[in-house]
Amino acid sequence: MTTRLYTHPVFLEHLTPPGHPERPDRLRAIERVLDDEAFSALDRVEAPEGDEATILYAHPEDFVGRVRAAIPETGIVSIDADTSASPKSWQAAVTAIGAANAAVDDVFEGRAANVFVAARPPGHHAEKATAMGFCLFNTAAIAARYAQEKHLAERVAIVDWDVHHGNGTQDIFWDDPSVLYCSTHQMPLYPGTGAKSETGAGNIVNAPLAPSTGSDTFRDAFL
């Protein structure tokens, strides 16, 4: 079985201010790499739009309503100092959730051995009731809950190797031992969370790394 790839043109329509680090060019860069012949075996599928009800697996209803209400009809608005939204941002966010949940279905139901989702906006900084760090909703957290709700997964592991700590994912699963959250990240760095001492219900494992850490130390952090 080959790796499945989900993406969608709407992800390029989630717009941020000029020069913003989380912009459509990030996804275009991934697309250019994956267009190489080395990735010709990828099973490329257009991401489906998600079921909005699944957002409630990780976020309260009033927060979801506030995000929806913040989406502008024209232009770009600021959700917080780092996080922006444009007219297509809601559709992009819901489609990103749809792709992640479809990836869960594909693996549990045997249609793919593994799945890569190339989507925007990102998610791991979005806390239970706070959009932040470029993120509107926590896509990974929703997908983890989806695996539990639909496929009755007893335990789910989320392994996060972004340079920034996934404070939102940690916040959502802080006291839930059914989800293991493991993160490697640079420290000190935004958002200032992710110390080794932050362990939740024994289900949070943080491996903060110093700036310019080399590959050997990075690999050792997974031991």
Results as ranks from 00 to 15, higher is better:
113 A>F: 09
118 A>R: 01
13 E>Q: 15
169 T>V: 07
61 E>Y: 04
113 A>M: 07
118 A>S: 12
129 A>D: 15
65 G>Y: 01
215 S>E: 15
61 E>P: 01
175 D>S: 15
174 W>C: 01
29 A>S: 13
119 A>T: 13
205 V>T: 07
124 H>M: 01
7 T>P: 02
6 Y>C: 11
95 T>L: 00
2 T>W: 12
199 T>Q: 13
116 F>Y: 14
114 N>H: 06
66 R>T: 12
4 R>C: 11
180 L>N: 05
53 A>L: 09
153 A>N: 10
186 Q>Y: 07
49 E>Y: 09
98 G>Q: 04
77 V>F: 07
218 F>D: 02
50 G>M: 07
88 K>I: 02
172 I>P: 00
197 S>K: 12
177 P>F: 02
196 K>I: 11
3 T>G: 08
34 L>D: 07
4 R>S: 14
39 F>K: 08
41 A>C: 09
71 I>H: 02
2 T>M: 14
139 T>Y: 03
60 P>T: 01
8 H>V: 00
67 V>P: 01
58 A>N: 05
204 I>E: 06
153 A>E: 12
167 N>F: 00
177 P>G: 03
113 A>S: 15
219 R>C: 11
211 P>N: 04
199 T>F: 03
134 F>P: 04
38 A>V: 11
121 P>W: 03
170 Q>H: 02
192 G>K: 09
89 S>F: 00
112 A>Y: 01
49 E>C: 12
150 K>Q: 14
214 G>T: 06
194 G>K: 10
205 V>I: 15
173 F>C: 07
146 Y>S: 09
201 A>M: 08
73 E>D: 14
146 Y>F: 12
193 T>V: 09
213 T>D: 00
186 Q>M: 12
170 Q>M: 11
121 P>Y: 02
218 F>E: 01
173 F>I: 09
161 W>T: 12
122 P>N: 03
88 K>F: 11
160 D>T: 04
211 P>S: 05
141 A>N: 05
165 H>S: 03
99 A>V: 07
222 F>M: 11
4 R>L: 13
25 D>A: 15
81 A>V: 13
38 A>Q: 11
164 H>M: 08
97 I>C: 10
164 H>I: 07
84 S>E: 12
163 V>L: 15
215 S>Y: 07
220 D>W: 09
142 I>E: 02
99 A>F: 08
7 T>I: 06
81 A>G: 11
28 R>T: 13
52 E>D: 12
12 L>Y: 10
23 R>Q: 13
187 M>D: 15
97 I>E: 00
160 D>L: 05
127 E>G: 06
